[in-house]
Write a protein that binds this DNA or RNA. Structure first.
Lengths: 207, 207
DNA sequence: TTTAACTTGTGAATGAATTCACAAGCGCAT
DNA sequence: ATGCGCTTGTGAATTCATTCACAAGTTAAA
């Protein structure tokens, strides 16, 4: 398949959210223009994004809301369940563990891991906290697909290497550091410091 | 000034992090190539990024670490302090309140706000939780520059409007929703659901 | 059946970001 | 002083992403 840009995938994800809203309100069709207005983009962009995957609309009418949302879920891989593990049972890990958006979209958090003996054996928002020492064993046994990394910056790269060796192919990183991973592993980084600095730049450099 | 792309600002922010590392280790000069390797980019990209703001390097030698990091801090607006308020004293708010990266970079969290009477008057990681009803009054009095929005999705847009009317120009949004704001207001959104869906897409569509 | 009002899907055009490639400058060794 | 090895700064070339613009398809009304 032709390479799909990251920005395109993000927009698909946004479209799906609006479609679910529409579905909820009982509407059956939607035009690229309405979708665009919601997502802060243009109708041509919406149609182009969708055209990478097929043609789902009806000329003169628009898109069927249930059909398009179904297709988007397929495209994004949301028609299957993904098992998620959280590495690092700190505050951020806890905030994520209770975040309802995960389960709503087919991501189930199976366990959290930490190296602090006081945390191991307890639960984090109902999710068991296990010893990080057993991570390789658990990955082999339970085959989670996605790992969320909420460890201190200096521990992030070694932990990523360890997860990759154990067979993880998708990582959501919250440590404020640039990570290296082999090409078959996808890493997304959420860096709050970077976002804040973007705001600082905008505040400083506006005329 | 010429318009600077968002991607450029993000990279500058990454460069600064490495420079601080280098500074810490007592190194005095660095080449665009070393900076690039750390940041997962190319030396030409590093030089182009910096060239928008001046020429800071010495041919044949590279960049002075303390000088370049100082210049980047200026460019990013980090030589001044920014006051931050957190709107929504839930789990994410708490995780952010204790995040050390903020203070380290000159962002000080002055207060959190909530509408839950059980939370108002208490503290969140040492930060006072105040009644959201007094937000306009406080903004006028304390003039915070940045608001972090950690409220439920459906409350985000009305709250943004309220903050903008009260004089806020920079918003870091954690609600999983697309927000509309006037052009003089900068909004950055951190959307975990979107990142996860990006991983789901990558897992699904790899050959 | 014809017409009018819409809306899609998509090549072509434009615009933006990245990479190339090289002249020019700097430091060190000889 | 001269030459060599290294690195910057930057126009030009290229690649990537977005927007334009319109033929073709659909519905509904007359």
């Amino acid at each position: 398949m032709k390479h799909i840009a990251d920005s395109t995938v993000r927009r698909l994800s946004a479209y799906l959210r609006f479609l679910e809203d529409f579905e909820h309100r009982g509407l059956t069709t939607i035009s690229s223009d309405e979708l665009a207005k919601q997502g802060g983009t243009t109708s041509a962009q919406v149609r182009k994004d969708l055209s990478f995957f097929g043609s789902f609309g009806k000329r003169g009418l628009g898109y069927s809301v249930p059909e398009l949302s179904g297709r988007l879920r397929e495209i994004l891989g949301l028609s299957q369940h993904w098992r998620v593990i959280i590495i690092g049972a700190g505050k951020i890990g806890a905030a994520l563990a209770q975040y309802r958006g995960f389960r709503q979209r087919g991501f189930s958090i199976v366990a959290a891991y930490d190296n602090n003996p006081e945390k191991i054996g307890r639960t984090l928002e109902g999710i068991p906290v296990r010893d990080i020492a057993q991570i390789e064993h658990d990955i082999q046994r339970e085959a989670p697909e996605i790992a969320v990394l909420t460890v201190p910056a200096e521990a992030a790269q070694p932990m990523l290497d360890r997860l990759v060796r154990a067979g993880i192919h998708a990582i959501l990183n919250f440590a404020p550091t640039q990570l290296q991973a082999p090409p078959e592993v996808t890493v997304k980084t959420v860096n709050m410091a970077m976002e804040l600095e973007g705001l600082s730049f905008a505040l400083t450099n506006r005329e």
